[in-house]
Amino acid sequence: MQWLWENRDLVFGLSLEHVRLSAIPIIVGLIASIPLGWLANRFRVTRAIQLTLFGILFTIPSLAFFITLPSVLGTKILNPVNVVVALAIYAIAIMVRGAADAFASVPRDVIQSATAVGFSSVSRFWKVELPLAGPVLLANLRVVSVTTVSLLSVGALVGNGALGYLFINGYQRDFPTEVMIGIVFTLIIAVLFDQILVAIGRVLMPWAHGVRGSSRALTVGGAA
């Protein structure tokens, strides 16, 4: 506790950095996965290709990603962009499958009847398919959120891991308290993100009480 108090500026700064660096990939993952998931659900051929491709992407070890991305992107190894891009790719890899499932979860009956009463395909996507895919999208986004927050720590090995710095520093100095503080604050951020997502879901999908899946958040762990 005393250590925390003395280093509050450091921990607070790292936490803010952690929030910032993990929020971007989560948002990018969501936005990119919606069209990709819709395509994957719509056309069987693209589904097979996409799900395989993104499945393979997710198996690339994160550390290897962090180290090789600078040469691909032409950035410096210490540039935080590397970590953000890598995490965004992971987020998309998880979310595409989830988004495809989300669009598949929209009842066919409802799509048919929406077409029958005269929705154009564009208005049907925005007013029917996307909202009804919402609960499953949200469930998957919560998985991505937790994964991203925890995976970001690995970036500390290449100098950009926000709270991950406390793990490496604490380990090198053989100082468990610092590692502990790092874990606790990572956890707080993960829970905070999750609660924010749940709250957003409540506001946007008041009709979905009881439909929302939540247990899946625990079944996919970090890929570190």
Partner: peptide, 11 residues
């Protein structure tokens, strides 16, 4: 158009 299971928009 009226169909079986109403086809209403659940949201």
């Amino acid at each position: 158009y009226v169909m079986q299971n109403s086809g209403l928009l659940p949201h």
